[in-house]
Design a protein around this nucleic acid. Structure first.
Length: 472
RNA sequence: GGCCACGUGGCGGAGUGGUUACGCAGCGGAUUGCAAAUCCGUGUACUCCGGUUCAAUUCCGGACGUGGCCUCCA
């Protein structure tokens, strides 16, 4: 069954409007999203762009073909916060070794956290430290073109050399000056100039360069890695709202000035921020929640949550809107997911059922997940009324959106309970047939305390039967 | 101080210049020995004040509120 591919439209921060998406090359649609700095557990705010752009990745793969989309999400493994963490956690090790321990451990943790959220692996996940040469080449090009200069051992980007600097964030250099919070450093030509390369002390990580042994500034990493994997101009660049300025603004400045191009990416997308239980998330308020906390502990709502529940809780709100993350929200997401999963009908892999057209249309409309969820609700209702096709379309749609078909163990899926529970269920059925309801209810209550829910029904012959399910 | 978002019923949340979706919870009904699951039905909202308009929740302006950025925080 072939369905028409929906036309995508995406909101572009650069133009502040939603517009139809037209890739530069439909055979290779290219997207870059800023990834984590690996010095600590990723928090749930970090999870949002990961989930949002995974949804977009899935849509692009559906529309243009899985082999025609390249998605790059970097790993920032050189950063002063990492150095600080390395010194704190491994004071007895040589710095390089300590840094390696911190970044490897954090990266592994990040990848497993993110996997639990039902995300596909990006096509490439480059590390900053594997791209130092590319950064240096970019810096050299900027110096060559008079967009950067050396001062006091730093290489700085000359913001004044770019007339339309500030396009993305809609601010000009004067606005920034007015803030008076930008440190005025004597060696900078303009206060807004930012570091491309800085010298390292002996006890800091560094790489040899034409400008001395040093390390890259933060912004240059993404310019270098996106160019390496996607070319000087690509389709979509994503990240959190807070990255618009200065990070993305500076990426644009670097890439455009180094290449003499009119754009770095055609579409810039930014996800909104989230709060936790009505307050901004911060360590001092004690409501700092990591992805791992949610998956493994009872930090929010007193229980651990499946990754796909977190995924749904995140997607319930449009990606550009603010989210107030809460236990109640997770509960609602879990209930909703269970409803869909109960109604979905698994099909054989050969069936190739397409996701529901309304679901695709909604997602194609600037990732309107909530509208898609309305379509899923409608499918679930039809499936529960007995329309098999609706159940199959629901299953295909859930799969497309990155959800599994069952987050609980159920008798419908062929799950067999432990022997003593199976015995209890059989005993209860006997009691029911003997109309000993007190005994039957007692057994049911007992099982409920163990998290096993029973569902009675009558089969075609009018015989009492029982289904069961347990939370995974 | 500058720049940028957002403010819809108990909760979540879409959308629209003219009757405000949808979901959860609540309530009523069907079904059930009773439940559960499921189905059917159902009440309540567009922060405030101006302006434009025949008509604004929707457009414009202002106020208030919340959040973000202006230092490397998604």
């Amino acid at each position: 069954m072939t369905t028409a591919k929906p036309q995508l439209s995406l909101y572009n921060t650069l133009t502040r409007t939603k517009a139809p998406f037209v890739p530069m090359d439909a055979n290779n649609v290219r997207m870059y999203v800023c990834g984590p700095t690996v010095y600590d557990f990723a928090h749930i705010g970090n999870a949002r762009p990961v989930i949002v752009f995974d949804l977009l990745f899935r849509l692009l793969r559906h529309v243009y073909g899985a082999d025609h989309v390249t998605y790059v999400r970097n790993i920032t493994d050189v950063d002063d916060k990492i150095n600080a963490r390395a010194l704190r956690d491994f004071p007895d090790l040589p710095l390089n070794e300590a840094i390696r321990r911190v970044t490897e451990k954090t990266e592994t943790q990040f990848l497993s956290d993110v996997k639990a959220l039902g995300t596909l692996d990006p096509t490439h996940q480059p590390r900053a430290t594997d791209n130092i040469a590319q950064m240096q080449a970019l810096i050299a090009a900027l110096i060559e073109r008079n967009h950067a200069y050396v001062a006091s051992g730093e290489v700085l980007f000359d913001t004044q050399s770019m007339p339309d600097y500030g396009q993305l964030s809609g601010r000009n250099l004067e606005d920034n000056l007015a803030g008076a919070r930008v440190a005025v450093e004597a060696h900078k030509k303009n206060p807004g100039d930012f570091v491309l390369w800085k010298l390292s002390a002996d006890n800091e990580p560094g790489w040899d360069s034409p400008w001395g042994r040093g390390r890259p500034g933060w912004h240059i990493e993404c310019s270098a890695m996106s160019e390496r994997y996607l070319g000087p101009i690509f389709d979509i660049h994503g990240g959190g709202l807070d990255l618009i300025f200065p990070h993305h603004e500076n990426e644009i400045a670097q890439s455009r000035c180094a290449h003499g191009s009119q754009a770095m990416a055609n579409v810039w997308m930014h996800n909104g921020f989230l709060q936790v239980e009505g307050q901004k998330m911060s360590k001092s308020l004690g409501n700092f929640v990591t992805i791992n906390d949610l998956l493994q502990t009872g930090a929010l709502g007193g229980q651990a949550w499946p990754g796909e529940v977190l995924r749904l809780a995140m997607l319930m709100t449009h990606y550009r809107e603010p989210i107030d993350f809460s236990a109640r929200r997770l509960e609602e997401a879990e209930a909703k997911l269970r409803d869909w999963q109960r109604a979905a009908r698994e099909t054989s892999p050969q069936a190739e059922i397409a996701p529901d057209a309304d679901v695709l249309l909604a997602i194609a409309d600037d990732l309107n997940f909530h509208r898609a969820s309305v379509a899923l609700d409608a499918l679930a209702r039809r499936a529960n009324r007995g329309e098999a096709e609706a159940g199959e379309a629901l299953a295909a749609s859930l799969h497309f959106l990155g959800f599994t078909l069952s987050s609980a163990l159920t008798s419908d899926d062929g799950w067999e309970p432990p022997a003593h529970i199976a015995t209890a269920i059989a005993a209860r059925l006997d009691a029911l047939n003997a109309r000993d309801f007190d005994k039957a209810d007692a057994i049911r209550n007992e099982l409920a305390e163990q998290g096993i829910a029973l569902l009675d029904y009558k089969d075609d012959q009018g015989q009492r039967q029982t289904k069961w399910e347990v939370k995974r």
